[in-house]
């Protein structure tokens, strides 16, 4: 099953969550390294998304027409 495209908002939320989890005093080395790796990957993904972002503009009449042809 292919994973649905992650929402940018969710990426940011997870990133913040990771930084908070890392702040935990009790965190072990293995877990912190795992979280850190995930965090760095996420942050790079976010940066890439921002850099490659291009505003998309659709007009509804066209959108509906193309929706119909797809059906």
């Amino acid at each position: 099953m292919t994973k649905k495209k992650e929402k940018f908002e969710d990426l940011l939320k997870r990133l913040q969550e990771i930084s908070e989890l890392l702040e935990d005093e009790e965190i072990g080395l293995d877990e912190s390294i795992k979280l850190y790796e995930e965090g760095i990957k996420l942050s790079q993904l976010c940066h890439t998304k921002i850099e490659e972002a291009e505003l998309k503009i659709k007009s509804l009449k066209e959108a509906l027409a193309s929706d119909q042809t797809e059906v």
């Binding site: 940011l12 913040q16 890392l22 390294i33 760095i40 942050s43 940066h47």
Partner: peptide
């Protein structure tokens, strides 16, 4: 977007310094 970007940079910085600290 600029604020988001600096937010991510800030998180990067926090994660790095925290990782150093843990090590």
């Amino acid at each position: 977007i600029d604020e988001i970007q600096s937010f991510i940079y800030e998180i990067d910085r926090i994660m790095n310094s925290r990782m150093d600290e843990i090590i």
